[in-house]
Each structure stands twice: as C-alpha cells, then as structure tokens.
C-alpha cells in the first residue's frame, strides 16, 4: 500500500491527531520530522513552501498537499482500509460529525494554544478560559449522548470528530486543567482509548 507523507512534530497535538487517525484507519505514514520546538522550522522559508501559514501537520498524497488538520483527518479516513468506519454513512450522523469538526476548528483551537503556551513558552492563562469553556460544552454534549445510549460524539460509533476532539481533553493536564469536572468526557476518552489501533503520545499515559 502506498505511504502518505506527514510532516510531523511528535509533541504537537495536531500532528498527533493525524498519527492517531492514520493508525485507526490503517494508513501507513512516512513521517518527516520537523523541528517545530525549539527550532521553529515550520515557520521557516523551506516549510512555508508547503504550508504557507506555517502550520503543522502537513499531509502529502502525491500531488495533493493538505495543511488543515480536519481535512487531513477526513482524507486519512477515506484512504485507509479501516477508515470507512470513521465516516458515518447515515446522513444525520455524518452531519453531526461535520458540525463537531467545525466546533473543533473554531472553538477548540484555544486548547492547543493553551498547551503550546504551557509547554513551549507563553501565558496559558490567555487561552485557558476559552479552552475550558469548549470542553464544558463538549461535556454537556457527551452527558446527553450517554443518556441516549450513544458513546461517541456523532453517534453510537467513533467518527473523525472523536479523533479530532480527543486530544483536546486527553492533554488538558498539560495546561493544568484536571479531569475531575468532566465525568462524561472521562468515560468517552476511555472508549476512544479502547479503539483498535489507538496510539498515545507523550502526555497521554499508556494504560487502560
């Protein structure tokens, strides 16, 4: 099977999303390591040719170059032999997945920003309130999903939306947000961890 190329930094949570999706979907990645921290290589002129906004990860599949994480996840799910399971066939469930992917893109960026500030320099407090509010909205949603007997964000099965959103919660302790106040997200995170092909990254302990 052909390998797709991922420009990757192991400690970057967006890159982890792509690695996790690839592993779950059964896609082999050719990883190219980018010295994002401390080297800031992703903002340098060579990488800007690939990713004009200086964003990671970058996925290359032949002539196709993707620089936004949500489309990267969707493309990996469509490409991998096991990826179809993460793309709901029911129209309503699929629409809900897209809605939560848009929520991820618009509203959960604060969690990545808070984490980046906490780990690599900056003030996490600038981003932490918005990030916490986003996770509380997701907690409310998953509390309701649980009562409907639906274990995942879009429905009864895991979708690309779960892969996008999981790291925001799983890595929140990096920016000092404990999991105590998020009982529905704790249970959801356990379900995600049990998916076949699940992989961790530094900051997400390897157990359960």
């Amino acid at each position: 099977m052909r390998a797709l190329t991922l420009w990757n930094h192991d400690l970057d949570d967006a890159c982890y999303r792509a690695r996790l999706m690839a592993s779950l979907a059964g896609v082999t990645l050719d990883l190219r390591s980018v010295d994002a921290f401390p080297g800031m290589e992703h903002r340098g002129p060579a990488m800007r040719v690939l990713t004009p906004m200086g964003r990671l990860p970058v996925l290359q599949d032949g002539d196709l170059v993707l620089t936004q994480v949500e489309p990267i996840l969707l493309h990996l799910a469509r490409t991998g032999a096991k990826g179809g399971a993460f793309l709901p066939s029911d129209g309503q469930v699929h629409a809900r997945m897209e809605d939560w992917l848009a929520f991820h893109a618009r509203d959960m960026g604060a969690a990545s920003a808070a984490r980046e500030a906490a780990l690599f320099g900056g003030d996490p407090c600038v981003h932490a309130p918005a990030a916490r509010e986003g996770l509380r909205v997701l907690e409310d949603h998953m509390a309701a999903q649980g009562l409907r007997g639906q274990g995942f964000v879009a429905g009864a099965a895991a979708s690309v939306a779960d892969v996008a959103l999981f790291p925001a919660f799983a890595l929140s302790r990096d920016w000092n947000l404990d999991h105590d106040g998020f009982p529905a997200l704790r249970q959801w995170a356990r379900r995600v961890r049990r998916l076949t092909g699940f992989v961790t990254m530094p900051g997400i302990p390897d157990y359960h």
């Binding site: 999991h179 105590d180 704790r186 356990r190």
Partner: peptide, 16 residues
Amino acid sequence: VALARDIDAGTSAGVV
C-alpha cells in the same frame, strides 16, 4: 461526590 455510573469498574477519578 459522583454518580455511581460515572466511575466504571477498574477506573479511578479525582474528586476535590
């Protein structure tokens, strides 16, 4: 301090 169903067998949670 918690709903019984929110802490599954074989899991732990922090409570303040």
